[in-house]
Amino acid sequence: MSQDTLQDFAGVWIGKMSELVQTIIGSGPIKYIVNWSRMYALWPVHITTACCSAEFGAMMGPRLDPERFGMQAVAGGLRQCDLLIVEGTVTKKMAKRLKIVYEQMPKPRYVIAMGDCACSGGLFHDSYSIVNDVHKLFPIDVYVPGCPPRPEALLSAIVKLREKIRRQEVFA
């Protein structure tokens, strides 16, 4: 067998193998195990875009204690995170950086838009330096309106996101 055909052969086989693995994982009990472990490892990126961060801090505090849902308070680097919480107004200057941050996160990644500003522009909708359509930068999983939302609202958004993760396909 020549070198080329060997490579083709191996390539086909590797492709088939990965398909096989995907079908095994994507169906039946393994899917639930994978999703279950993802549910309990929602680590947020620490990027605060505006004033809603005060309520994010309150949510991280001792009252609501999101660590019982597996949210670690401050994860070190972007590569360990899978949840991006857009905490309020996204200015044009920040939008560029936010997009870079989102792209650097490993998949699967989830986004929560927190606050009226991140949902639709909010209080500053007519300012010259605001991005009103954050959903055009990246897909958003859960919206939390409020200016600022109560920490309980943010926590319920996280519970909702966990519900979404529980039902999702593994290879979406």
Partner: peptide
């Protein structure tokens, strides 16, 4: 941006 005659109509001003 702070000059009085500068308007940002695309932002709905």
């Amino acid at each position: 941006p702070m000059l009085k005659d500068i308007k940002f109509p695309e932002m709905g001003q």
